[in-house]
Computed example of a mutant assay.
Amino acid sequence: MAGHSKWANIKHRKGAQDAKRGKIFTKLIKEITVASRMGGSDINANPRLRAGVTAARAQNMPKDTIDKAIKRGAGELDGVDYVETRFEGYGPAGAAIIVDTLTDNNNRTVADVRHIFNKYGGNMGTSGCVAFMFDHKGQIVFDAEGIDEDELMEAALEAGAEDIVNADGSFEVITAPEDLSDVQEALAEAGYDKPVSAEATMRPQNTTEITEEKPAATMLKLMEMLEDNDDVQHVYANFDIPDEIMEKLE
């Protein structure tokens, strides 16, 4: 399916099942801090900060924690100075991967990310080698259980969304990045107030299918190890794995 990667749903299920809320909060706090430092602490005038706060609220982050991160970024509280770096490369079967990081030690992060790529069947490429294969979008994900697709579609489009995708037991509401917060707020008012996630993301224009079990397992391990690195904020990929292989791996 163009614009959809299997990893998006695997990640959402994994996040809902395991006990990694502390790590999720850490990544969100870093994003809010950097967004506030770069664009100012006014949420209404800083689209990136607004998107970060929207993502944090979707994960039920306490308001006090969000406010402290904003103040830290604005210089009102002491904090660490993070550097943004994007890495691009390829995984098994030539799947395209983007890794966005925030780090206080870029040399460490470069070495760590390169090591993970090399260990799990991938290789890092040059800047821009795969980014053109993705579109920057806002994405609000809902568990499909108990939700009527047509009703959600109507509410989402009325709220200003671009599209809604039915994918593996979830609905993905797609927006322009700058419309993410407004669409989420409108959907919440319409009764859709419990998204699995709401975030700015990079959606693949097309997917690369991995049809053999071994490279598929290696691809998932590569993604998991990248996601688990403390300096990594987001990992995007364009691979797809057929359901019959996923069932064997799960």
Score class of each variant (00 low, 15 high):
residue 2 A to P: 12
residue 2 A to V: 06
residue 3 G to S: 05
residue 7 W to T: 01
residue 8 A to W: 03
residue 9 N to K: 11
residue 9 N to H: 09
residue 13 R to P: 02
residue 13 R to Y: 13
residue 15 G to S: 07
residue 17 Q to M: 10
residue 19 A to G: 08
residue 20 K to F: 07
residue 25 F to C: 01
residue 27 K to C: 02
residue 28 L to E: 02
residue 29 I to G: 01
residue 32 I to N: 00
residue 34 V to M: 04
residue 34 V to S: 00
residue 37 R to L: 04
residue 38 M to F: 07
residue 48 R to S: 08
residue 48 R to L: 09
residue 50 R to C: 04
residue 62 P to Q: 06
residue 66 I to H: 01
residue 66 I to Y: 00
residue 70 I to N: 01
residue 72 R to M: 15
residue 74 A to T: 03
residue 76 E to D: 15
residue 79 G to V: 01
residue 79 G to S: 10
residue 81 D to E: 09
residue 84 E to N: 15
residue 87 F to W: 03
residue 87 F to M: 05
residue 89 G to Y: 06
residue 92 P to L: 11
residue 96 A to R: 14
residue 97 I to E: 02
residue 102 L to A: 01
residue 105 N to R: 13
residue 114 R to D: 14
residue 127 S to H: 10
residue 130 V to P: 02
residue 131 A to N: 11
residue 136 H to Q: 11
residue 137 K to C: 07
residue 138 G to M: 02
residue 142 F to M: 03
residue 146 G to L: 11
residue 148 D to C: 03
residue 150 D to E: 13
residue 154 E to G: 02
residue 154 E to R: 09
residue 158 E to F: 05
residue 158 E to N: 14
residue 159 A to W: 04
residue 164 I to S: 02
residue 168 D to T: 08
residue 170 S to I: 10
residue 178 E to K: 14
residue 179 D to A: 13
residue 182 D to S: 12
residue 187 L to K: 02
residue 190 A to G: 03
residue 191 G to R: 08
residue 195 P to F: 04
residue 196 V to D: 15
residue 197 S to M: 04
residue 199 E to H: 05
residue 200 A to V: 08
residue 203 R to G: 00
residue 204 P to N: 09
residue 205 Q to C: 05
residue 207 T to N: 11
residue 209 E to T: 08
residue 210 I to Y: 00
residue 211 T to C: 05
residue 215 P to A: 09
residue 216 A to S: 14
residue 218 T to L: 13
residue 221 K to W: 03
residue 222 L to P: 04
residue 224 E to T: 09
residue 225 M to I: 08
residue 228 D to N: 13
residue 229 N to D: 15
residue 229 N to Y: 13
residue 231 D to F: 05
residue 232 V to D: 04
residue 233 Q to K: 09
residue 236 Y to H: 14
residue 237 A to F: 03
residue 238 N to I: 04
residue 240 D to V: 06
residue 240 D to Q: 07
residue 240 D to K: 11
residue 242 P to W: 07
residue 243 D to T: 15
residue 246 M to N: 09
residue 248 K to F: 12
residue 250 E to F: 14
residue 250 E to I: 09
